[in-house]
Design a protein around this nucleic acid. Sequence first.
DNA 1: AGCTCATATGAACATTTGTTCATATATTTT
DNA 2: AAAATATATGAACAAATGTTCATATGAGCT
Lengths: 122, 122
Amino acid sequence: MGNKEPLLSELENFFQALSDKTRLEIVLLLLEGEKNVQELSASLGKSQSLISHHLACLRNCGAVKVRKVGKFVYYSIADDHVKDILSRAIDHVSEYSKSILSCEIVSQEKGQGVKAEQTETR
Amino acid sequence: MGNKEPLLSELENFFQALSDKTRLEIVLLLLEGEKNVQELSASLGKSQSLISHHLACLRNCGAVKVRKVGKFVYYSIADDHVKDILSRAIDHVSEYSKSILSCEIVSQEKGQGVKAEQTETR
DNA sequence: AGCTCATATGAACATTTGTTCATATATTTT
DNA sequence: AAAATATATGAACAAATGTTCATATGAGCT
């Protein structure tokens, strides 16, 4: 019953890689197929440097893989695990935001959303 | 092309909720079953305030759900989507760290690790 | 050889995030 | 009623993170 530390750190790194809008835009593009840095940079309208930094982050946790062709570097989603995680996460947030919307008719507040409280103010 | 902004923000929030060691410890405990705040606080040896803050984060993205019983609040994993995502992520990082280890046998302790590979730690 | 193109990386800065402490709210008990 | 218990939340500060700018590496071309 070992030390869970390494597992925790690796999970942390993995999820953290996916917890940024730019990196999510990258992986969503990569779900459509392999792309090199320029293509990503152009599609997202963001600098090459920024894209490269984010790709380094996605590489480090094994979310994407690399194929070099001459001076081009093509990136793609690492494996089916990652694809599954992404598609399930998309399903989850889609369902969850629907459930939020149906509640927000009542609470016009933004930000915290619904926070599952049936604690009526008496 | 539809506006992907809301989807991106929700994915970002969701993954970000899972990208912290303490919150991961919480959800891993919750995978074993429903627990209230004190139980989580005691199991992890961390303050009630800290656990509550992190639970708020996990609630806001729909990763956990809540059941109030008197003055106790029981938390559990929100649904099978989230359970699946967690178990696949665990599989992914397990495989990935194995593949890293098998490469590090070659690069002995000292040098820069593997060449232009995806081994990069910051 | 030089030059250009594609990508990677380091440093600096501004923003964000996690943790702690103090306090608020809600429920039960005395 | 007050006190005790369980949880939530706000403010403040340290640490981590994303972005930009400048520069480095490396491959193809003339």
